[in-house]
Simulated assay, not measured.
Amino acid sequence: MRLDIADLRLFLCVVEAGSITQGAARAHLALASASERLRSIEADAGVALLQRRPRGVVPTQAGEALAHHARLILRQQALLRGELQGFAAGAQGTVQLYGNTAALAHFLPHKLAPWLAERPRLHVALKERTSARIITAISAGLAEAGIVSDAVQAPGLQLQPVAKDHLALIAPAGHWLAQQGTVRLADVLGEPFVGLAPGNALQDHIDEHARAAGRALALRIRMKTFEGLCEMVAHGIGLGIVPQRVAGRYRRRYGYRVLALQDDWARRQLCLCFGDWHALSSPMQSLLRHLGAVPGSDTSNQG
């Protein structure tokens, strides 16, 4: 077979998305170009790799075999790239690290700075995604590692807790909820909310659980920053959901009330997430060790 890395990456994107259209978008290809590539891949293989259905595609048995080997090849490519980029762990090149909103906003800055300062020739590309999307990317071999919430299942991957990341609900001081200590999201879905900007990974996570609880959040306004959200809540615009550390940071300034969310998905820990430690590039191993990873510890999530 004459498959190149781009073909393997496209095929995995389509398999993980369950859709040629969405897979093409993830691979940054036009639909027509992606469809033509997939036809060429199947023609070269001499066997059907995808079963087309009215609402998407699923891999055939041959497609599952190709997806399995594609993941291995892409992981080996990442390992090779890391080795060539710097024999001294993390000495040069670029490390791509995925993280959810809380990881990028609060956990990583003070942790990452001293590690990066010691490696002047190294670049780090941080990519914000929801925890579920990060796990999907790692499982598909499209990412080496990330920082996710333990509220999401990660079968077959390593999850190593490194920090607490509980979420809290904040309410205006005069709100009827202000005298309560705890609340469930389902009990306040009829209230107006202040949210974060579209595409924010944390807001996507909250929106998903709101829909699962019965209805979408009624968002009056979306803010780009946590502080902007907190200020809107303090002025009575609506309720908000933010990490507990954020709620505590701005509470004195804006005078809102903080309520613990009783929902299991809101009582989270931030975890380093990765697959086979030995398949990681040297720079990534160095970074994960610095962030608290323990190589060889049995923390695989069989969820």
Rank of each mutant, 00 (worst) to 15 (best):
V58Q: 13
R26E: 02
A266K: 02
V188E: 02
A247M: 08
H110A: 15
L97H: 01
P54L: 14
H290T: 09
P243T: 11
A168N: 07
A173N: 06
P59M: 07
L177F: 12
R52M: 07
P172W: 06
L272R: 02
P155L: 02
S139P: 04
I237P: 02
G236I: 13
K224S: 14
G99M: 06
D204M: 15
R129F: 09
E231S: 10
T101S: 08
Q158S: 14
G18L: 03
I73N: 01
A117Y: 10
K127Y: 10
S35D: 11
L167D: 01
D187N: 07
L108I: 10
D276R: 05
A102D: 08
K164R: 04
T60E: 12
I147P: 03
A30G: 15
G146A: 05
M232N: 06
H290M: 09
D4N: 09
E208A: 15
G199H: 12
G18T: 04
F107C: 02
R252Q: 15
R252L: 07
A234T: 08
V242E: 08
E42W: 11
G275V: 05
L287H: 02
Q262R: 03
Q180T: 12
L157I: 05
A25M: 15
A65V: 13
E144K: 02
V233G: 01
G292F: 11
E42V: 13
G255D: 12
Q76W: 11
A173T: 06
A17D: 06
S281K: 00
L49Y: 07
A34S: 07
G174S: 11
R26D: 04
